[in-house]
Design a protein around this nucleic acid. Structure first.
Length: 419
DNA sequence: TGTCCACAGGAAATACGGGGGT
DNA sequence: ACCCCCGTATTTCCTGTGGACA
């Protein structure tokens, strides 16, 4: 037995115990909390009067149910992380309980579109949730899916409240989806349907077919972004439960709140930032300092890029890798699609992939642009023709990590030499 | 002022692969 | 096992265009 080693480990354990920052990690990540803890957390946030005004409005809107009327649809606007989902879920659970006590039939569902999906998948998800159908990838018509949903609801006579979260995330056939929900479904079922459509795009109804839009009788509710004070409340609650007392330096909570506030008042991001900072502090064996918050913010941003690329289609990954290679090889301050495409073809041949046409490649390039991996713009060189100018401006470290991630992900780290 | 480059990006056609029905 | 239908991915086809240059 290596006594030196065991001593060292012993010391480390003691030291880390002394300097432990995190008391209960689960309170830094909502998904790890069991339901009753979530409810308790939400209640303590709402007791802090953080979303009072919005809850008042919700109550007012839904009082029709108790009068035996059908409330009109509700459109909710607010940036991501302003507590739309949390507040509405909380409210609906409450409402459900109230209805139950008064013997009113009510049923609510939460359709979460936070990852974009086509109409078919969205309807399929809904059908699954109300147990009207199983999950399909393909092979069944939209019509059939709609019919199954109608069939399930046909004989339900109570109130059916459908909360569509991030409702503008329907890809492609936006209209089909909302024509169904707004015009067709209510006509074919006995249930009294009330939609809650939440989105962060203020102008999303302008995408709707005018005929559907005119059919949509609705109220509107606006979630204002959290201000720094609200965020501090929310963070304090978490800190109290998740961290040991006295481990957070002065000003840290204020700083996290301020940073999150500047970025659209997103509470989830604020909590993530707190969580990451606490992790770093724990690893380093120090208190949670202002400097660690900065570092955590940087790491979170990089992690997001890496996660995005890892879960992207393979050709998008190849496009990214090819652009990185081409960028390193180019002497100029930018490159055009053709150069990037040549690099992509080389990458594909070395990686044993069938390259796509330049048309498809171009779409991937603009996708990378919208996600912020690259900057590109279309630029005319007069007689030299028009082409897209591509610039890669990521921090060196992130660029390398992205490249490594892609190679690893495509299982090619051995095949390709470092660029 | 008109020409013309070299690609962007929309629309339609086609290929692909899962899934139901028989 | 076979065929056909479907949504999605990709290709094919094609029109449009900003501005240097003649």
């Amino acid at each position: 037995m290596n006594t030196k080693l065991s001593q060292r480990i012993g010391h480390r354990l003691e030291a880390s115990d002394k300097q432990a920052v995190i008391k209960d990690r689960r309170f830094l990540d909502d998904e790890q909390l069991i339901y009753s803890e979530q409810v308790e957390l939400v209640e303590s946030i709402f007791n802090a009067k953080v979303r009072d005004a919005e809850i008042e409005e919700l109550i007012y809107h839904f009082t029709d149910i108790f009068r035996g009327h059908n409330p009109v649809h509700l459109i909710v606007w607010g940036m991501t992380g302003t507590g739309k989902t949390l507040t509405i879920q909380f409210f609906l659970t409450l409402l459900n309980e109230l209805c139950r006590r008064r013997g009113i039939d009510m049923w609510h569902e939460h359709l979460d579109l936070s990852t974009p999906r086509p109409c078919f998948r969205a309807l399929n998800d809904l059908a699954c949730q109300i147990k009207a159908s199983k999950r399909y990838k393909k092979g069944i018509s939209l019509e059939e899916m709609m019919y199954r949903i109608e069939d399930k609801l046909r004989d339900y006579e109570g109130h059916f409240v459908l909360f569509v979260d991030e409702c503008d995330h329907i890809r492609h056939d936006f209209d089909t989806f909302y024509t169904f929900l707004i015009r067709r479904l209510p006509q074919r079922i006995k249930a009294k349907l009330t939609l809650i459509l939440a989105s962060n795009k203020i102008d999303w109804p302008s995408q709707l077919d005018p005929r559907v839009k005119s059919f949509l009788r609705n109220n509107e509710l606006l979630f204002k972004p959290y201000n720094a004070e609200d965020l501090q409340h929310i963070l304090q609650i978490r800190v109290k439960r998740a961290l040991h007392p006295g481990t957070v330096k002065d000003g840290v909570i204020e700083k996290i709140a301020a940073m999150a506030c500047r970025e659209h008042g997103d509470a989830r991001k604020a909590v993530t930032l707190l969580s990451k900072s606490a992790d770093l502090a724990e690893k380093k064996g120090s208190k949670l300092t202002l400097q660690l918050v900065d570092q955590a913010a940087k790491e979170i941003e990089q992690d997001q890029y890496l996660l995005m690329i890892r879960t992207a289609p393979v050709h998008l990954q190849a496009t990214m890798a090819a652009i990185i290679v081409a960028w390193r090889n180019t002497k100029k301050s930018s490159m055009d699609t053709r150069q990037a495409y040549d690099s992509y073809r080389q990458f594909c041949s070395r990686a044993d992939m069938q390259p796509l046409t330049i048309r498809a490649f171009g779409d991937f390039v603009s996708e990378l642009d919208t996600y912020g991996f690259i900057r590109s713009r279309v630029l005319s060189r007069g007689r030299g023709g028009r082409s897209r100018d591509i610039v890669l401006e990521l921090p060196m470290e992130l660029e390398q990590r992205l490249y490594d991630t892609i190679l690893l992900n495509l299982g090619l780290q051995k095949k390709l030499p470092d660029a």
